[in-house]
């Protein structure tokens, strides 16, 4: 019953996204489409992070690295003369898998604050790698010569096509994540979150499951990186700054952790909030930060927690 409710939320979100091109047309505001595409990309990233953060209770503070890996896969392949988005996605995923297997195998040997610090440190390592890689633009980053091509056509030069591609990818990946979470693998992952000792006692070794989840999560996030690179037609290390990792966590928590649709809603909320605040003041990060501290101190659990508390209130009144 609960799962169906969440699916409904996701369906509503997808329908809302699908209405954006119409709205942009009506309001004569092409910028809407740009924002919506960014929202879709970050929704994919947040959903990927939710797999480890929500279902594995592994607080990865380094997921921005995978955004960067996806984005730099586009840059590097374009320099080599490869323009097809399918290949860009494949390369991004492959690189993310390699990075995730290596760093995950080390990070997952530890727990708690260690895990947070180590994932953060590894993402900084990737960040500094690209900052000092002057051939790729170094700290300043570099523009892409064009957007990726789809089956040899430059369809994605049109913002509308890029938007539909991003929405298609989000829906597809949502179904994939949903299947993963509902599978036996997902159950074991949740079990290891609740009680690793007990899982081991009944014959599961959490490490392999957690590493697999971490790798899948990184691969999904790298897809978002490919989309973001195409959207901005510009790739710089700023994409993998540690603040970005923090923002991804914020998105997951805002919508409620361990609910895939929540991650999507959280990405939409967080970007809306950023855009709105940035419209009011150049120091929007101050208010965003205050908002975060306020959420944690006064409304733990984000939107999901709020809804749960309201439900509880209504329930107790009956």
């Amino acid at each position: 019953m609960r799962l169906m409710g969440r699916d409904l939320v996701a369906l509503l979100l997808f329908a809302g996204f699908a209405a954006v091109p119409l709205l942009a047309n009506l309001l004569q505001d092409p910028f809407l489409l740009v924002i919506a595409t960014r929202m879709l990309a970050f929704a994919i990233a947040a959903m990927g992070l939710d797999l480890v953060l929500g279902y594995g209770a592994l607080v990865s503070f380094g997921h921005a690295a995978y955004l960067g890996i996806g984005a730099y896969a586009v840059t590097i392949l374009m320099r080599l003369g490869v323009y097809d988005i399918g290949l860009h996605l494949l390369a991004g995923i492959a690189a993310a898998v390699v990075f995730a297997v290596g760093t995950g195998a080390v990070s997952l040997r530890t727990r708690g604050v260690y895990f947070i610090m180590i994932t953060l440190a590894f993402s900084q390592m990737a960040y500094f790698f690209f900052v000092s890689f002057s051939a790729l633009g170094g700290d300043d980053g570099a523009s892409l010569p064009q957007r990726s091509t789809l089956f040899g056509h430059d369809l994605l030069e049109n913002d509308l096509w890029l938007f539909w591609l991003a929405l298609g990818l989000l829906i597809g990946l949502f179904l994939v994540c949903r299947a993963i979470v509902g599978s036996r693998f997902g159950r074991v992952l949740c079990g290891a979150r609740e009680n690793p000792q007990r899982m081991q006692a009944i014959g599961f070794v959490p490490f392999g499951y957690q590493l697999t989840a971490y790798v899948i999560s990184g691969a999904i996030t790298s897809i978002a990186g490919v989309l973001l690179a195409n959207q901005a037609e510009f790739v710089s290390p700023a994409l993998m700054n540690w603040h970005r990792s923090g923002e991804l966590i914020v998105m997951v928590v805002l919508g409620g952790i361990g609910t895939l649709s929540g991650a999507i809603a959280g990405a939409v909320l967080a970007l809306l909030l950023e855009e709105t605040l940035a419209g009011f003041t150049q120091y929007w990060k101050l208010w965003f930060g205050l908002f975060l501290v306020g959420i944690v101190l006064f409304a733990p659990g984000g939107v999901q927690g709020l809804v749960a508390r309201i439900k509880l209130q209504i329930g107790s009144r009956r």
Partner: peptide
């Protein structure tokens, strides 16, 4: 730990700005 990460990350933004 997740709450601590979020709140102190918020503080980083507040203090830097």
């Amino acid at each position: 730990h997740l709450d601590q990460v979020l709140a102190t990350f918020g503080l980083v933004l507040v203090i830097s700005e």
